[in-house]
Design a protein around this nucleic acid. Sequence first.
DNA 1: CGAAGAATTGAATTTCCTCAAAGTTCGTGG
DNA 2: CCACGAACTTTGAGGAAATTCAATTCTTCG
Lengths: 266, 266
Amino acid sequence: MFALPLAYGRMAMSCTDQADFGPFIERLTARSVLSEEEKQAILGLPGHAVHVRAKQDFVHINEETAYSCFVVSGLVGRTGQTAAGARQITAFHIPGDMPDLSSAVRPVGVGGLTALCDTVILRIPHVAIRNLMARYPAVAEAFWRDTMLDAAILLQWVINVGRRDARSRLAHILCEMSIRYGRDREILTEYDFPITQEQLGDAAALTSVHVNRSLKSLRQEGAVTIRSGKVRIADWDKLVAIGDFESSYLVADTGPERQRRLLSAA
Amino acid sequence: MFALPLAYGRMAMSCTDQADFGPFIERLTARSVLSEEEKQAILGLPGHAVHVRAKQDFVHINEETAYSCFVVSGLVGRTGQTAAGARQITAFHIPGDMPDLSSAVRPVGVGGLTALCDTVILRIPHVAIRNLMARYPAVAEAFWRDTMLDAAILLQWVINVGRRDARSRLAHILCEMSIRYGRDREILTEYDFPITQEQLGDAAALTSVHVNRSLKSLRQEGAVTIRSGKVRIADWDKLVAIGDFESSYLVADTGPERQRRLLSAA
DNA sequence: CGAAGAATTGAATTTCCTCAAAGTTCGTGG
DNA sequence: CCACGAACTTTGAGGAAATTCAATTCTTCG
């Protein structure tokens, strides 16, 4: 078995530290208007913790699940595949993300989910999510908005894979993850990114050999270094220039002010 | 000016033929449980018709709009761009689609919208959409689900661009459009696809020169022919094989039965 | 009929891939 | 604490796919 069930119970109880679920709430509330009651309701979602070892799929392509996953720790990749078996990572999901939140509304279509390193997830029944959304329309909208952020990232992914050369693709990914790992979306010049060059290649649509050569080039140019899962950005501006990175798709979001405007207009 | 305003008024009135808005309703109701009242409410959305000439952008990248677009006729491309100016089409939208429905909830992040040929769209104010969703939660969910179908298509787009060679990419696109143009998702072996090889290249992340050579190869192999915007699929099975096409991401959807199950469970 | 846009073809070049072999790192068990 | 093995990284050489640049032909449309 690839997965080891640990505990059942309320989300807040299935982990010793309730803060585990914090990042998601933080991200949501940064972009949506949620009341204390609504936030508490989200925190009260029932969750089932699962440890997944590195390189194990925990949701298969075209699998129809009855739950959505919340990433507690580790790193998750959304994957697709050609018939020939070539793997493509279409998204990274870090702690605080819900990679397949959309499955609550459309049970298939997110592709597979793989743990890129040892990872802990929480499985949250669709029924619970749907109940919550029925009760709190603002939560439903916040969830929808969260899936649209994923879609916006995916859109940049297409551009990255389609229109940039190897070095740019990698630089772009490293810039993006820097912002995403950062609290309040600030730039992290150093962060843990537990991924192999092979997996980076699956994400950037390159072979691991070419990833290696390209990383070497980035390193020699003094832009960035990756060593045993630790990214050190030596020169942010240079990395941004190489990666043709423009963070607005991550940052420019519907903040609470905008939400209030929309709500008052309606 | 690139756009020529035509008429204001209720959606049903801004076009002589109400059936123009039909495809969207059909698609939605095929995947969601909507009452007659809810359908009528959607049909009653106010729309502002706009004619857009070929190759004109009508929503710019990072533009924050106050409306979503509904494609009445023609062909729309969602676009992204690198700083160097390389263009990438990330999605095609055909009559009946709402390319930036998501902007009602997250005003930026869909990229730009371009008319790939002479096209008519309807601009529907976010306020109206949001009012409708507030009144009918089932409509809100149906709209969300529609954006998730786009996301699922986008996911395949990444795989296509990232992991297939030129011929396969083109074959995959032509297969996908065949299904999408078909009513009830049946296979069309002949359909209008008013697009240039240059634009196909922007979609497949290839140069127009290489698109040309690859199409020639597909033609010579007896798989498919494109001539002045008309696709003729000579051998569907062959095209599917070359394009590594598996239609479930378009077809396998949350039908009404599944929706009823989810609703009753909740 | 003429012009503009689109499609087609050729030749040289570049980027990335494939195949193959060493070298490193790190965890595990002796 | 060291030896071993597995996984990961690094490097080399040759080849394939797609690009670039440039020129020509075909279509469409006013």
